[in-house]
Design a protein around this nucleic acid. Sequence first.
DNA 1: CTATATAGTTTGAGTTCTAAATAAAGTCAA
DNA 2: TTGACTTTATTTAGAACTCAAACTATATAG
Lengths: 172, 172
Amino acid sequence: MKGADVTRNEDAFSPSDAVLAALRKIIRSIELNSRSLVKRVGLTGPQLIILKEVSRMNGSSIGEVARTISLSQATVTGIVERLEKRNLLLRRRSDVDRRKVMVEITQEGETLVRDAPPLMQEAFVDRFSRLPEWEQSMVLSALQLLVQLMDAKSLSESSGLMEEDGDIPVVL
Amino acid sequence: MKGADVTRNEDAFSPSDAVLAALRKIIRSIELNSRSLVKRVGLTGPQLIILKEVSRMNGSSIGEVARTISLSQATVTGIVERLEKRNLLLRRRSDVDRRKVMVEITQEGETLVRDAPPLMQEAFVDRFSRLPEWEQSMVLSALQLLVQLMDAKSLSESSGLMEEDGDIPVVL
DNA sequence: CTATATAGTTTGAGTTCTAAATAAAGTCAA
DNA sequence: TTGACTTTATTTAGAACTCAAACTATATAG
């Protein structure tokens, strides 16, 4: 019998669903933070992250930057392009390896970084640093555990259990 | 003298930097999983999330869905539009309040949801569920703490914590 | 009936990914 | 050495997602 009431509330809420829900909120927070940065600094979160990274390791290649901050090269290329248009940094092919494109920060970019807009979540950093140490450790451990669980795909996993369609590219 | 030392490895790596780095990796993982979903199911992560949500609470409004999954209405509108084009769900204005748009899943959508893989990587769900309970709890607690710290924008100021839908179904 | 509030949609800007196209270097063999 | 292949890095093109702000339509006051 299909009940008259519409509310199909699901009590069954698995722990991993809760994890996903929490992650979603966190991701959204970061997103919103980025938006607010645009108003305060004129740069989005990713742009500022890259600019800071370039400032720290001046003269590194696009690929290095991408690896450092966990973004694809294509993504970094796009952001760097926008930053270059604003004269915050400039690109130049490497002398030693002409395949590489080195990125250097400009005076203007350096100034902007120095006036150091509160890095993305400076407010968060502040609160976080005030937590008792055990709590900081717990959070960090939990996150790293998650990273492992998600990453693991490429680490282990060699079982021969999966037949199904042979369309499983798996690992490499 | 400039060349010489290249490796400017980050010695100064504060806990909160590590947190951000880990989050970035997690976000990327989720992003990549979404891409792989497209190939396997034909839907992206967000699309599948919404479709599942609609399946669970059939006949809810766009706004309700948006709130439930922590996305803006505008975003949900766009995704729902794409899903409607694929005949996986359909929109209909509410009879009681013509401002509202109710979303209903179609037979086709229901079928797809039934056959769809979990939102997170299957392997992740699997591994996570195998963790000892205390570890699952720790991860969840840590994430919820992060949510608070990031959200804190609203509770740091005034002690009174507003509504903001205290919808945290802890479990465990 | 006007004024305000709410629900959804549209628009504009930015980020993100993959896949395919380029380009430069490195490797290997004749 | 030279030519063919392979590897590595960057760029381009295309599709989604994301949000805020502006806009439309409806609802609820006063």
